[in-house]
Design a protein around this nucleic acid. Structure first.
Length: 256
DNA sequence: ATGGTCGGCAACCGA
């Protein structure tokens, strides 16, 4: 089972890239974030034509998450609960008999801002959501744009970036709490080296060429499932296309 | 080299 996560920064602007990547790489499951599109405008037909099932929740301009899968997507759920106060940032389903959580964690803007507090609260709610709905002893995938680089090797300049949104001690504590619940960072299990990133800021000139990146997109699995992972990698292909997203896919393979 | 990041969407917000 091959699964990937890709923040597309607009599903409509990136449609050719996503279709091309699905066709070439043929993942069993793709988790997408930042649709930036209302549900009635989602380009569903393009994915049906290449035999992918899809579940999604979007809104105007911001956020939005989707699941693509070759096999049926069961028990789709949007958001933490019925009274969701945030934009669409969480979609869960069961595919290949594995429960999957796809998230677009709030970016947090600035550690002095209200948005940063909301980001930490969101991560707290996710922990409560896990405790309530899942068993860390059973297979589970948590995939998506976490908007946090967990370790010094996950950012291009840890000394300079320490304390910034995306690489802040409070975020690291929140992520550690989630990992302690029962997750393994599947990419890191297979790729121990530094300098491997999934995101490069558009605003930094030649950031990809200079590899001024962050590893903020992740594939985490509970221990019983992580035991079955056989490889994981970052696919630079989509980031080297003409009109790329600022993110590129992270992929993991499991032998179930 | 007289430029300078994107996308959405219609003036700026969010990243």
């Amino acid at each position: 089972m091959k699964i990937a996560s890709f923040n597309v920064n607009s599903i409509r602007a990136r449609l050719p890239i996503v279709i091309d990547w699905l066709t070439k790489e043929s993942p069993d499951v793709l988790c997408v974030q930042e649709l930036k599109c209302q549900d009635q405008d989602f380009p569903q037909d393009a994915f049906q034509e290449i035999n992918y099932n899809v579940a999604y929740k979007g809104e105007k301009s911001y956020n939005g998450v989707a699941l693509f899968s070759k096999l049926p997507i069961k028990d789709v759920r949007i958001g933490f609960d019925k009274k969701e106060t945030y934009g669409p940032r969480l979609i869960t389903a069961t595919i290949y008999d594995i429960p999957i959580i796809n998230t677009y964690v709030p970016q947090g803007f600035d550690p002095d801002s209200e948005k940063f507090i909301e980001k930490l609260e969101w991560l707290k709610r996710l922990h409560a959501f896990l405790k309530k709905n899942y068993d860390p002893g059973k297979p589970l995938l948590w995939v998506g744009d976490f908007n946090v680089a967990p370790e010094p090797i996950d950012v291009y300049d840890p000394e300079k970036l320490s304390g910034h949104a995306g690489y802040h001690p409070d975020e690291h504590a929140a992520l550690r709490h989630l990992m302690d619940w029962g997750f393994v960072d599947v990419f890191r299990k297979h790729q121990p080296g530094p300098g491997l990133y999934t995101f490069w800021d558009y605003r930094i000139r030649n950031s990809v060429k200079r590899n001024l990146g962050w590893r903020i997109d992740h594939i985490w699995a509970t221990k019983s499932l992580a035991k079955k992972s056989v490889d994981s990698w970052i696919d630079l292909g989509p980031r080297l296309q003409k009109k790329p997203s600022d993110h590129t896919p992270v992929v993991a393979k499991f032998e179930l």
